[in-house]
Structures are given as C-alpha cells and as structure tokens.
Amino acid sequence: MTPPSAPTPMRRIASMLYRRPNFYLLLLLTPPLLWFGIIYIGSLLSLLWQGFYTFDDFTMTVSTDLTLQNFVNLFQPANYDIILRTLGMAIAVTLFSALLAFPVAYYMARCCSERMKAVFYIGVMLPMWASYIVKVYAWTLLLSKDGVLYWFASLLHLDGVVDALLQLPGIGGKTLSTSNLGRFLVFTYIWLPFMILPIQAVLERLPPSVLQASADLGATPRQTLLHVILPLAVPGVAAGSIFTFSLTLGDYIVPQLVGPPGYFLGSMVYAQQGAIGNMPMAAAFTLVPIVLIAVYLSIVKRMGAFDAL
C-alpha cells in the first residue's frame, strides 16, 4: 500500500485545510458570520441608532440631528398604558398557558405508551406549526357573532354566561371578538404548544424512581405532585414562558384583528413607522420590548429555564 503517486489538486486542498484547522474553521464560519453580522446585526444597530434622530412634527420629516428626545418621550403616561396593557396580557397568557399545558405535558410524558406519546407529540406539533395567520383567522370565525362559540353557547343554553362574562370590567366588551377575553383566548391558543413541549421534556426526564421514592416515603399522589413534580417542572414552565411571554409582547397582528381598540407595543411601533412615518420614535419604541424581554430572561434564567430549552 504505497501512497498514490501524485495527489490531485482537491486532495492537496484537503491536506492544506487539515493542517490548518483554524483557517478551516474560519472558512466555515465566514458565510454565516457575514450574513448575520452585516445583514442582521448591522440592521439592528442602525435601527437603534435611528432612535437618536430627530423627527420634525410639522414637516413630518426625519433629520440626522442627534437627540435623546425620543427616549424621553417613551415616558409619557399614554405610553405607560400601552406598556401595562401589553405586559398584563403577556403575563395573563403565560399563566393560563402554563395551567392548560401542564396536564397535557404530564399525560404525554408519564402516562402514555410510546405510540400514544407519538400521537400527542404530533398533535401538539401540528397546531404549533400550522399557519399563524390562518389560526388567527380561524378564531375570528369562532368568535364572530353567529359564529361557532355563540352557536355552542346557545345550544347549551349558556348565552347568559357569555353575556355575564362580557359584562365584566377589564375583560369584557360588546362581543367576544371585540373583548379582551377574546384576544386573550386567541393568544393562549396560538402560543400554548410552545408551553407544552418544554414542560413535557422536563417531566420526561424525571426518573420514575424519584416518584416511587416519594410514594415509598409515605406521600399521597397529591403530595407527590405538590412537593416533587411541580418544583421539578419549574424549569420547563420557565422555558415555555419565554415563548408565551415574548411572543405575546411583540405581536401586533392579533391586537389588530381581535379585541378592543387601543395600542399594543407592537402595533404602536407599527403605527409609528407606517401611518405616522416617525421612524425615530418607532426605533426608540422597539427598545421597550427588548428591555422587557431581557429583564424577563434574566428572571427565568435563575429558574433554570435555559437548561430546559
């Protein structure tokens, strides 16, 4: 087995790359680095930079004079309302999703045969990936007057209950599709799968011996759930909440289509750059969800969310 007589050019390149692993690494990384560095990070930084530009309210034009005024304007009371409205919805959606997701995840992780688990897994994956806009559209069909939900309500003689719910301050409204309740349902529906999967993953990793040990030491199933399973599921809930929280926070399509009028963070940014044409203010506004999400991430990181992703 003597070495081949003359190495081909391709083999010579291969050997050259083999001898210079750092150069090879650089070669692999260059295309993605250029793409993300220039296109994405470049755009992001230039957007934030625009937050320092000046917008002239009278001429509706942007000048490149640098100012902090846009960031100061964020602290107007009207903007507090927007932030609180969005934040409140994000938190409510997160809590309710966790409540709905837990039994599904628990059932998937611990009570199913392999086959049933696969059914549930696909059953959660498909709605998760099914078109976002179609899902929102489906809910406009469901919530509309004469729509499916109203029909079911009257079928079960629950019209009174629906009306009573809609009378409640804060979540009520004229109809389901213009109420906060409706918007809340849509958000919960859309982001629920993102909560189920991380919880399921965490619960699946729980060794059965831990639960057996708890039972062996005299705990009732309820006590085991409360003192063993729930604490151990916290990282999964925290990981899932990253999605439910930040996706709700940044959304502007759902608030536009379902629920009462009034800006959300996303729709405010959208309106600023689009209808109003105040790009500097829009840029400054994008900082709000970024900061809120950063704060949120730093909280859930302590709960072990990143290990459960």
Partner: peptide, 28 residues
C-alpha cells in the same frame, strides 16, 4: 413500561387540551 395510569381528571384535561388545539383547525 414506566407509564402511570392517570386519573380521569388528568385524562380529561390532557385530551381536552388536545381538542382545544385542533378545534380551530377543524373549523377551517
């Protein structure tokens, strides 16, 4: 197999969640 037998409440909640996820899709 390590699978637990769930209470009817858990079973209901799990299947209920799955139905909730698929109902709007069926409507479409």
């Amino acid at each position: 197999g390590g699978a637990e037998s769930p209470s009817w409440l858990l079973r209901l909640a799990a299947w209920g969640g799955l139905v909730f996820l698929h109902f709007p899709i069926l409507i479409i």
